[in-house]
């Protein structure tokens, strides 16, 4: 399993997709981003265009990854843990629950069905704005999930300006 982290628009998706293309096996794109808020449709459309003709089967799954069944063993790209965590944590009625188990067991279920899994996440704990308690709880939950996934992953890279910086494991040639 590989974990890719980095800030907004640092080239994580492009790098992950290019990596998937190196393998000739079924390619799955697990999309966790729920279309919500201004600009989300455009972002989803942009990512969809990027994946067009790359042979990805897109599976939209906003929560409950533990119940996901992939038809074949191949390579999966899960994007991204920040969305999945938020979806598992907050519901539309404003309830908050700890997303840790759902995200971690969901990723484990996905990984069992894949030959290779690339997981994209984001670093959201590095700013100084005063957030409400719910957002602070989200930041901490995502930090804990990222640390757990990094512990499980063979490779962890941070993407900076499209350049992978190995944080764990060797850089793939």
């Amino acid at each position: 399993m590989m974990l890719l982290t980095g800030g907004s628009a640092c080239g994580k998706s492009s790098y992950a997709e290019a990596l998937c293309l190196r393998f000739s096996m079924p390619r799955y794109y697990i999309a966790a981003m729920r279309p919500y808020g201004e600009g989300s449709e455009e972002k989803i459309a942009r990512h969809r265009t990027m994946r067009a003709d790359k042979g990805f089967v897109t599976v939209e799954r906003y929560t409950g990854l533990s119940g996901l069944l992939l038809p074949h063993r191949g390579i999966a790209l899960l994007e991204c843990i920040c969305n999945l965590t938020a979806n598992e944590m907050f519901d539309e009625q404003g309830n908050i629950k700890d997303p840790f188990d759902a995200v971690i067991s969901g990723v484990a279920t996905l990984y069992r069905q894949c030959r290779h899994l690339i997981v994209v996440t984001n670093d959201v704990g590095s700013d100084s704005k005063g957030y409400d308690p719910g957002t602070r709880a989200y930041i901490r939950a995502l930090g804990r999930i990222n640390a757990t996934l990094a512990g499980q992953a063979d490779h962890v890279y941070e993407l900076v300006c499209g350049i992978p910086i190995p944080l764990k494991g060797e850089l793939l040639p």
């Binding site: 980095g6 800030g7 907004s8 628009a9 640092c10 080239g11 492009s14 808020g37 201004e38 600009g39 920040c82 984001n122 670093d123 959201v124 704990g125 590095s126 700013d127 704005k129 957030y131 957002t135 930041i139 300006c161 499209g162």
Partner: peptide
């Protein structure tokens, strides 16, 4: 591009444009 993704659409666009330009 780090930190919580802003709620404000323009701020999000600006962060992403900066990231893409740097790539």
């Amino acid at each position: 591009g780090s930190g919580i993704i802003p709620v404000d659409h323009r701020e999000r666009l600006c962060r992403e444009a900066t990231g893409r330009l740097c790539v």
